[in-house]
Design a protein around this nucleic acid. Structure first.
Ligand code: NAD
Ligand code: NAD
Lengths: 214, 214
DNA sequence: ACTATACTGTGATTGTCTTCACAGCGTGAA
DNA sequence: TTCACGCTGTGAAGACAATCACAGTATAGT
């Protein structure tokens, strides 16, 4: 109920902490210090402690944080009770890569169905995910409780796709199309703009090469 | 030489402005107001004006900004003189999607070559991009001036790949692997972590649905 | 030529996130 | 039992980015 008050950057870091903590736990460790967790990311120990404080967990001044306990607490914050359903729209190159990724490993957030206009994808099972024609989207959404939609269609179709997902009850979108989606205020949009990321990288490549060597 | 002093968020927005300005120009417009440019992104008009101010461009108080002129100025900032070379390492699902994307449309930043361990990809032309065996990477880099590397290999191979790229002279990496790369200070790393993005989206889907309707 | 208008340019302000710095404390050693 | 150590928890300070608010100004209309 008070989830809304976690700052966006903290949520992002919590996801990363979880990944590292899981790896540590799997490697047989039981406890971590803030500076160890900080070193694995590119953050300061103080930042880690503040994040942990924010989610209401605490460690021992001498032994650090209990990995399993912290992991549970992060899960309580991040994981919705009952899980979120996720659907993918657009089974092109990117959509297939996403299906391979989220179906391949036992993902905490599995994609339950995919949709596309192309008739030949309908009825297929791609990387373990059932694909349907886009016309079946709204009836699918009305039958299942789906909170997240992934938009991996061409830019021209993105707004229309967003509309359909939101009308079907989706509350958040992960958008890969290079357009700003127009959505109601109660819908969250996370944009992943790979072209912008590459341009930014290219820019900094240039400025790094102008700087003094270290 | 003074490029290094542009804040990261501004660079990101400049990429977005450019995309919109290009579209406007193509649509036959000659000038824009800050509020129009702002509406296309999700930023305030003041933000747009400040960004424009920062890059040393100015518009007319009545007619707004000249689209072509602003576009040129942004290009001067973002585009390296002579262009940056970009190589891709890891021609799996994601790597192929990237090649399709950056080869398909006439991208401002084309990928000049791709590398993979799998012998069957060597010598292939995928979406217009030549693919080579990873063993050829260092000799390729020594022959061409390449400033940017895209890391699309499995997490386990990411650090090794980063090392090879940096040793070959690359100054910035676009990293899709879910690991924090350890690089020298004069190398820039842009992480695109799709799994984290999805988890974040799922989290906000949950908190949005708890909020009051609008 | 003059005026009304609506936009730009920017100093000042606000807000947000990060970092500092240290008090408090649990633990292990003597 | 006592002490010293090194980590956590956190108020305060700092850094940075976004926004406000308004003075300055170029244009179109009269
Ligand atoms: N491939 C990449 O690496 C990459 C990188 C950055 C951004 N993107 C963006 O991601 C999106 C998808 O990219 P892609 O490379 O997979 O493109 P793609 O052309 O390979 O795939 C698009 C898919 O969407 C389907 N589609 C089209 N209109 C539809 C509609 N109205 N409803 C449902 N499905 C529809 C098509 O049939 C196709 O299968 C694009 O917006 C692209 O700009 C892709
Ligand atoms: N596919 C996605 O949607 C997605 C999403 C998020 C993150 N990622 C990350 O992106 C990376 C690639 O994902 P993918 O789905 O394309 O995986 P993939 O297994 O399909 O492709 C990996 C490719 O890398 C090649 N490779 C392995 N070791 C190599 C090495 N040492 N040098 C050069 N090439 C090597 C393999 O031959 C393979 O072609 C992974 O780190 C993955 O975690 C992928």
């Amino acid at each position: 109920m008070k989830n809304v008050e976690f700052p966006d950057p903290t949520i992002e870091r919590l996801c990363c902490y979880r990944r590292i903590l899981s790896a540590l736990l799997a490697a047989g460790h039981a406890r971590v210090y803030s500076h160890e967790l900080a070193a694995a990311q590119r953050v300061t120990p103080a930042q880690v402690r503040r994040d942990v404080m924010l989610i209401g967990y605490s460690g021992s001044p001498v032994k650090g944080y209990d990995i399993a306990g912290l992991l549970d607490r992060i899960g309580e914050i991040l994981d919705p009770p009952g899980g979120v359903g996720v659907v993918l729209v657009g089974v092109g190159y990117l959509g297939r890569a996403l299906l391979a990724y989220f179906a391949g490993r036992k993902s905490p957030i599995p994609v339950v169905a995919a949709f596309d206009v192309a008739p030949e994808t309908s009825g297929q099972l791609i990387h373990g995910c059932h694909c349907y024609h886009i016309d079946e989207l709204s009836s699918f959404l009305s039958r299942r409780s789906i909170l997240v939609g992934i938009v991996a269609v061409p830019a021209e179709a993105a707004q229309k796709t967003a509309r359909e997902l939101i009308d079907g009850g989706v509350r958040a979108l992960l958008n890969f199309a290079p357009v700003q989606l127009d959505v109601p205020q109660n819908v969250y949009v996370e944009n992943v703009d790979i072209a912008v990321s590459l341009e930014k990288t290219a820019f900094f490549a240039q400025s790094m090469s102008l700087e003094k060597e270290d």
